[in-house]
Amino acid sequence: MSTLTDKLFKRTKDEWKELLINNAIIIVIFAIIAVVVIREPSFVSVAVFRNILTQSSVRLILAFGVAGIIILQGTDLSLGRFVGFASVLSASLLQRPDYPSRFYPEMAQLPLFVPLLVAIAGCVLFSAINGWVVAKFKIHPFLATMGMMITLYGILSIYFASGAPGPQPIGGHDERYVQLVNGQTLGVPNLVIFATIVSVIIWVIWNKTTFGKNMYAVGGNPEAANVSGVNVMKTTILVYVLAGVLYGIGGYLEAARIGSANNGTGFGYELDAIAACVVGGISFSGGVGKVSGAITGVLMFTIISYGMTFIGLDQYYQYIIKGILIVVAVSLDTKKYLKKV
């Protein structure tokens, strides 16, 4: 017993400091929750907890996609457009048969998995192009994905405008689709279940497969990885393919989650996802990042934004707090890694 208390409380000043720095983001999250709870004790409720998890679910799936790319020292500015692309594809294929302005007026009801596969296939195709361009021509992902962001917006807008009713928001989703995404199983929101399954799969891929190990190796030091026999090109493209799969799933879920899809859906999501990853310790310098980091980062942002809306804080202050938190969280995190080096 005494060893346990020793372990918990008998630390030197430096050890305390290290403990603080290592858990800075968790501490920040709890500080925010504390402030919110003091202002509004009703924040501690099952409904709030469920909503925060539900609102984090799609963001988390998307964050995993860009996280792999960040581990490769890259970034993906086209994420938001992928979400829009997948959302519009899914929603257009899953409207109620009796909805007055259907995208495809004559189309029969499809099985739910077909549009999901279409969305995934579409996203994988274009994301693989991103990966190929980055790996083959050694273009910085910032630029390659910026190009894709603009191109894909064009493609997605053309598709969006090609529906029978013209470029109208795509609503009236099939009840089965709405139920699948917004329903719950044994009291747990389905979105949370999906996000959990995806998290487990991603954890296995990152930690237990050769591909995962190669990803960290290439991200840490591409030359060294190449010398030790890792196929850098293949690994890079596969990371983007995995991102495409996740964007496809995320966009499919997002359209039904919010209830309508248009060519602006997903706009700006890339910055949220990237910020969440970086805050969660998935470093821009590459080779570093954990599944738990992405989860922490996404949860932190949802809690901040939910909590501040909850207590009715003026939005302009919300921007200031969010901005400062990103920089503070990242600088504390960087300090942690600097120390290890």
């Binding site: 509004e40 009703s42 709030v48 909503n51 919010i258 859906t265 809306t309």
Partner: peptide
């Protein structure tokens, strides 16, 4: 952005406040 997502997320938060 006058967005759908904004309406969904903020309304969900208000309904638990």
């Amino acid at each position: 952005n006058w967005s759908v997502q904004h309406g969904a997320d903020k309304m969900a938060a208000w309904l638990t406040s």
